[in-house]
Design a protein around this nucleic acid. Sequence first.
DNA 1: GGGTGTCTATAACATAAGTTATGAATAACT
DNA 2: AGTTATTCATAACTTATGTTATAGACACCC
Lengths: 251, 251
Amino acid sequence: MTLLDTVVMRGLGLHGALSPEDKALLLGLELNPKRVSAGEVLWQEAADVDLFCVVKEGWAYSYRNLGNGSMQILKVYLPGDIIGMRDFGFSRRLAGVAMINDGVVSPFTYQQLFDLFGHSPALASCLIATTVRQQAMLTERLVYLGRYAAHERLAHFLYELYLRLQRIGAIEDNGFAMPLSQEQIGDALGLSAVHVSRTFSMLRDEGLVQRDRQHVALPDPDALARLVEFNDTYIDESLPPAFQAFQKLER
Amino acid sequence: MTLLDTVVMRGLGLHGALSPEDKALLLGLELNPKRVSAGEVLWQEAADVDLFCVVKEGWAYSYRNLGNGSMQILKVYLPGDIIGMRDFGFSRRLAGVAMINDGVVSPFTYQQLFDLFGHSPALASCLIATTVRQQAMLTERLVYLGRYAAHERLAHFLYELYLRLQRIGAIEDNGFAMPLSQEQIGDALGLSAVHVSRTFSMLRDEGLVQRDRQHVALPDPDALARLVEFNDTYIDESLPPAFQAFQKLER
DNA sequence: GGGTGTCTATAACATAAGTTATGAATAACT
DNA sequence: AGTTATTCATAACTTATGTTATAGACACCC
């Protein structure tokens, strides 16, 4: 899973018409793949910001450990995502990042990013757009944490994962591997592990979600989407016309 | 209140050494000031993304109206802030924006932003860093919504406003004008208006917050900061060394 | 292969926050 | 100035979610 597969192929980027230099720049971010194992911490909160990562295999999450002993998971990263852009422009990490299961990541440096920015404004604006989209997902979770009940939060979380996994071809028969424990899901949704379990049972009884250990199936994704009134604006990946014009101009 | 006052003077940007062209580009975003009145909607959710705004006077907020009838306020904008960058790279607005009180805003276009990006990568990276910082504030609220109780959320919210207002010289005797109603504060913190009132009473009884209509005073800001274990990493405005090196290089 | 730990389901109970209601204080309007 | 509409404080009651506890299922390890 390379950035070319995600950033570009998804309609972001230049609609299949990346210049060779742009392709090289993008691939240059993925030259140092590194095997990482489940639970491994890629960096801690408040660590120096030195590099970013492309997730090539496996899932990761960013988190904050809080003074009251609890943890808030901010975001789950899937293959093809870039980790760490949240910290762009900061000296220290705002959140830690850890692997959920075994995987492969490709670290790249600030320097590489700046090189890319300097050489291809079009590609830079693409990467920024990707980052903004990731933030939009966070905003969507904020909305759910603020104003929706547990079953809606969980349904939304699962449906969002479903859409993101679909995009990278990781959905089979409406089901997917789910390496997060209920405790971790609770940490993402601001719920206790017990209540996550209760809520899963509830969604199961309503026929909306089937779960067996590390496997989740959504028998009727559309029904789930209706339940959470899924707003897909933020997951839509087309760029606005002004943006495309700019990118053409730059080449 | 211009961007030069905020983006640049705050240590973001080139440490007082902006080139004349960069200054002109920045000021170019503020050529069309426009008077707006309390409650005025700058744009609705899902509207086309055509422009962004610098807030010159007054407060604004971005919001989402939800299917269940409630509203989630995402962010409060103060003078010197840029509104709308959240939507950069999207065709449609992810959130509406409305004025809280009377004020003045300066709209600028996608085109202007791209011009700036094309002409000054250094300034572009500054604007991006500013946007990322705004997003970091959102993330901080996400953490509070997920894992802290009402009194901590409110204390944190007030203290963050306090710090931001201090930066633009809007704090007097540890107090500031607070045009938000308790209902709106509730919409920002994911609480009912009634509970916001209760929580204000509680903080008042503990001597942490004084409030009189549209005026809030924090008699002991440090005590408040301790209560919320305020993490000021995300409000710190210095740029990392790599960033500064890049900016020097670009000039 | 039996012990050990982690994950999950469910129950019983505790509590923070939501809801509804009411009156007082303030602001807005004519 | 009097009327009306917001906003706020507080109380009484309800409910969703947290907490603690327990037991079964599965994974891991020597």
